Amino acid sequence: MTLALETRHLVKRFGGFIATNDVSLQIRQGARHALIGPNGAGKTTIINLLTGVLSPNSGEILLGGEDITSVSSYRRVGKGLSRTFQINQLFGDLTPLDSVMLAISERKGHGRFAWRPLSADREVADEAASLLERFRLVDVMGMPTTLLPYGKQRLLEIALAIAMQPKVLLLDEPAAGVPEEERHEVLGIVRELPANVTVVLIEHDMDLVFSFADRISVLAAGAVFAEGTVAEISRDPQVKAIYLGEDA
């Protein structure tokens, strides 16, 4: 099994509080892997450790077999690790077209040509147009991002992450806060993400988790409580008792 992402005995403490406790994960290349658990289980802490926002007290993080535990956040992006956030991190005054072209230009190392209009690079413009079409943003590509419906903002954030051509994509609750009438579009895009991109999903919507994931890790009190296929996790009585609130 080729591993895209791995953690070994990952520990993060905040004072006397242990946020992640000896977390070891193995996520195979091309997987659709979900991290689930109740609030306070340590899910977002793990994402922040994986992306370099936080540094672990002990343990290792490997991306494609390479130890990236001490690598900076922006260098992890360059090595193929991208993420989205629970709350959108977007430039409100830019349009989706400008935002995607900017991300592609940065990936291609065109930052030194910042004085040139983005539209001057035909290759970048063509790739941006293709991404906007794939993420169903063509109809709003010229609008300021701050004016977009929230569902479209979530789609744009995923599009920006894909624009960096990641090997591993971390999705932190992509459907959070999206109105019901827009959710089907967001969920459809999540399910249609490129097969060659390994996806790690944090999500409370169990319908999305069960329809998307091929493997699930259940966290409780900062530790991995259970792991298995969708079928195994969905019928595990202890998971139901701790996570779903059902009697074991």
Rank of each mutant, 00 (worst) to 15 (best):
E6H: 07
E182F: 04
M206H: 11
I158W: 04
V124P: 01
A4P: 06
P194Q: 07
A161H: 11
V230W: 10
G80Q: 04
A175H: 02
P179R: 09
L49M: 12
A213C: 06
L193Q: 08
T145E: 05
S119H: 12
R215Y: 14
Q26M: 04
S217V: 10
R107W: 04
A34K: 09
G92N: 10
F135Y: 13
P179K: 10
I68W: 05
G111A: 01
R76L: 11
I61A: 06
F135K: 05
R107Y: 03
F85N: 01
L160P: 02
E123Q: 13
Q29M: 09
G80F: 09
L10F: 05
L219H: 04
F17E: 00
I27S: 04
A220R: 06
Q165L: 01
L118P: 02
I189W: 08
M164P: 00
E246P: 01
G80E: 05
D67M: 11
G40L: 06
L219F: 15
L171G: 10
P174C: 11
K43Y: 02
G78H: 04
V197Q: 01
P166H: 10
E127N: 03
I189L: 15
D236C: 06
E203A: 02
V77W: 00
H110A: 00
E6G: 07
R122Q: 13
K108V: 00
R107M: 01
L170E: 11
V178D: 11
F212G: 05
A129L: 06
G15N: 12
G80N: 07
P237A: 09
T20N: 15
M206Q: 10
V186F: 03
A19C: 12
P237S: 13
A223F: 00
A128L: 02
L94R: 09
L171N: 07
D98K: 15
V186W: 04
A41T: 03
V168R: 06
F210N: 07
F210P: 06
G40R: 07
K12F: 08
E203C: 04
M141W: 09
L62C: 09
M143L: 13
L94K: 11
A19D: 06
Q153N: 01
N88I: 13
I158A: 04
G222H: 04
D236F: 02
L155R: 05
V100F: 05
Q26L: 13
I202K: 10
L102T: 15
R122A: 15
I87W: 02
G177M: 07
